[in-house]
Amino acid sequence: MPVPRREPRLSAASALAATILVAAIPLPALADALPNGFVRLADVDPSIRQDIRYAGSDNFLHREVNGYDAPACILTEQAAKALSAIQKAIAAKSLTLVVFDCYRPAPAVADMGEWTKQGGPPDPQWYPKVRRSELIAKGYVGELSTHSRGSTVDVAIARTGRRSSPNPACGGVDADTLDFGTGFDCFDPMSETAHRGLAIEAAANRRMLVDAMRAGGFRNYAREWWHFTLKSEPFTRLRFDFPITAD
C-alpha cells in the first residue's frame, strides 16, 4: 500500500517570508466591474445631470425596479461619449442634459412586464387613459427593451442656474427641466414626439431636443419624445442582465 506523501514543514522564518510574499501580490479589485465596452456616465461627463427614476419610487411602478441597486447611469462607451459631446454643445446656451434612464437590465424589463399582469385601473399621473394590463398591448411597456443593449437613453433638457418648475398633467419630471408638454414616462398619445396640440413652447423644446440628439448621432423613438438610441450602437443583438450598482 503506497504511503501518503508528507509535505516538508516550513520553519517559522520561511513561513513568515511566504506570508509577506503573498501580501505583496496585488489582489483583483472586489468592486463590481462593468462588462467590456460599458462605462459610468459620471466618469465620462459628470456635468450631465442624473435623475434615475427606476432606482426609487418616483416612477409608474411606484417602487424601485429590479436590477436598479443604485441611481447611476451606465452606458456603452460610445453612447456616453456621444452624450458628452451633446452636453458640450448645449452648454454654450446655458443648458444641460438630464437623464432619467440609461442601460436597463433585462431583469428590470421582466419586472415591468410582470407588474403589468397584476392589473389595475388607470393611473392619473402615469397612464391616465389605459388600464395597467393594457400597457404592453398599447406599446407603452415593452417585453423587450433597447435600453438593455446599453446605448439607449431617456433624456430631457434643463436650464443651468435657473429653475423652470413645469407641472405636467402626466408623467414625472425633474423640477428644473424645460416644458416638454408631458413628463417622462407619460403613457399617453401626448408623449408622441410630433403630437399635435402642444403649446408652442413645449413643441419648440421637443424639436430642440431632437435636433441636439440627432446632431450627436442619436435617433428618436417617435412615440416617446424623451427616448433616443445611438445610431451606431455597438451591441445591436445583445441584451445584458448585469445590475446597476454604485461606483
Rank of each mutant, 00 (worst) to 15 (best):
S94P: 00
L83R: 13
I86M: 10
A33W: 00
I157L: 14
Q118Y: 00
A215V: 04
G161I: 04
A18F: 03
G119S: 07
A199T: 10
L135F: 06
A72Q: 14
V153M: 06
R196Y: 06
R104M: 08
Q50G: 03
A215L: 04
C170N: 08
A202P: 07
Q87S: 13
D174E: 12
P189M: 02
D123N: 15
R207Y: 03
D176E: 14
F60R: 05
E64L: 02
D111T: 05
Y140V: 08
P105L: 04
G139P: 03
V210N: 09
S145Q: 05
E233K: 10
M190R: 12
A82W: 02
Q78E: 15
V130A: 11
G197R: 09
A42E: 12
A246G: 11
L21F: 13
N66C: 01
M213A: 02
G67N: 08
P121C: 05
Y54C: 03
H62S: 12
T229P: 00
G183S: 07
E114T: 01
D154G: 11
S57A: 12
G139V: 09
E134D: 13
I20E: 03
G171S: 11
E192Y: 07
E77R: 15
I136Y: 01
T160E: 04
A108F: 04
R219Q: 02
R159A: 14
T177S: 11
A215N: 11
E134K: 04
K93G: 01
F60P: 00
T236P: 00
G37D: 10
N59W: 06
R49L: 07
A79G: 04
V153W: 03
S151C: 09
L144R: 14
D58R: 13
I136S: 02
I20K: 10
P189F: 04
A17N: 06
S191G: 11
F235Q: 06
F180W: 06
L10D: 12
P166C: 05
F242T: 03
D188K: 01
R49H: 13
K138G: 03
N36F: 07
R159M: 11
V153P: 02
V22F: 03
P2F: 09
A212Y: 00
L238F: 04
D154A: 11
F38V: 06
Y68K: 04
F240K: 00
K81R: 15
G183Y: 11
I200C: 00
E233T: 08
T96S: 15
M190Q: 14
A199H: 09
D58G: 00
R40F: 13
F218A: 10
R162E: 11
